[in-house]
Amino acid sequence: MSAKRIPFEQLPITNRFMFAMVFGHKEIAKPFLEAVLGIRIHELKDPEPEKTIDVSPFYKGIRYDVFVKETGPDGEVLRSFDIEMQMEDNVDIPKRTRYYQAMCDSEALNKGEVYYKLNDLYIMFLCPEDIFGQGKAVYRFKNLEVDNPKIELGDLCYKNFYIFNKYRDVAEKSIREYLEYFATRNPSSPETKKIDRMVKWYQTDNETRKRYMTWQQEIDIAVDHERQRANDAEKRFYEAKDRANKAEARADEAEARANEAKGRADEAEARADEVERLANAEKARADKYEKMLRELGKL
């Protein structure tokens, strides 16, 4: 059953469409990234909200909420950031980050380029609940050597998770203010007030409403498509199961017939053994009688 749809005029920042629209502005995304990652960003290219990557019609594509790249003085790409608002369906997020990394990297290099040109990649998920269940408000992951965690793999990929309902547990004020706004929708800093003003503007903008309706239709179509694929897969499963059951029944019948034939063969063999035994006994009596006649001189 699908979740209750929120009226457009009430769409919060935690709605993926609204989040993508607002954070699709670099003057919103840049201070956010600097605050939650503790870094300084030289310049951001215009963010790409709802950026879609389809590498092949045969493989699963992805749609980022907000994808943005940092550029240097000469326009070179320094770092890439994928920012995702995830309100539900949190079970598979760790594996989603793995797939997102693969898709980001596949697009980062042109054919023939060397791997060292891969730059820092940050994949960031904003979630309401603690998906790891360890009581933390912020989880930061990078690849380390198992037996000696002081050794880093150095692949420059970082996966961060921000649990905004636990904003009270965040020591860093700059991070806490953002997470508090996502959790309560009450802005408490100049940056979150700016976000809130933009949300309210989008809520009243007719062009944004039209884009939202188109976006929602695309989502509904995608959901229906996935549901149909699931139904088709379930139908194929039960058809295959039915064929397997019928084949098993035929095998059982064949086995029963084979066992019956073997039983008849065993009975025939037993009768043959009995006939042979009687014949041997009759021959023994005949030999004995012949011997007796020879002894009496009758033969």
Rank of each mutant, 00 (worst) to 15 (best):
G61F: 03
T71Q: 13
I53Y: 13
P49F: 00
P31C: 08
P47V: 03
K60V: 07
R63V: 05
T52A: 14
I28S: 02
G72H: 07
K30H: 09
D54Y: 15
Y64D: 09
I62R: 15
H42I: 13
I28E: 07
H25C: 10
V68C: 04
H25Y: 09
Y59C: 12
F58E: 15
G38K: 09
Y59D: 13
L37V: 02
P47G: 01
L44K: 09
K69H: 07
K60D: 08
P49N: 00
V66E: 04
S56Y: 03
D46Q: 15
A35M: 05
S56V: 00
H25P: 03
G61D: 05
V66Y: 05
E27G: 05
L33C: 04
D65N: 00
E43P: 08
K45M: 12
F58I: 12
K69V: 05
K26W: 07
E50Y: 05
L44W: 07
P31M: 09
V66W: 05
L37E: 02
K69S: 11
V66A: 00
T71N: 10
F32T: 05
I53C: 07
E70I: 04
P47M: 07
F67T: 00
P73G: 09
D65M: 00
E48T: 10
F58Q: 15
P47W: 04
E43S: 14
P73Q: 11
Y59H: 15
V55C: 14
S56L: 06
Y59T: 15
L33S: 02
I62E: 12
D65T: 01
L37I: 04
G72L: 11
F58T: 14
I53P: 07
F32Q: 03
L33W: 00
G72E: 05
I53W: 12
D65P: 00
T71I: 15
H25T: 09
I41S: 10
R63D: 02
I53R: 09
D65I: 01
I41F: 04
G61Q: 07
V66G: 00
K69P: 02
E48V: 08
A29V: 02
P57G: 13
F58R: 13
D46F: 08
P49K: 01
V36Y: 02
H25A: 11
V55N: 15
K30M: 10
L44M: 06
V36S: 01
V55L: 15
H25E: 12
E70V: 03
L44A: 06
F32D: 02
E48G: 08
F67A: 04
E27T: 10
D46W: 10
V66R: 03
T71P: 05
A35V: 02
G72M: 09
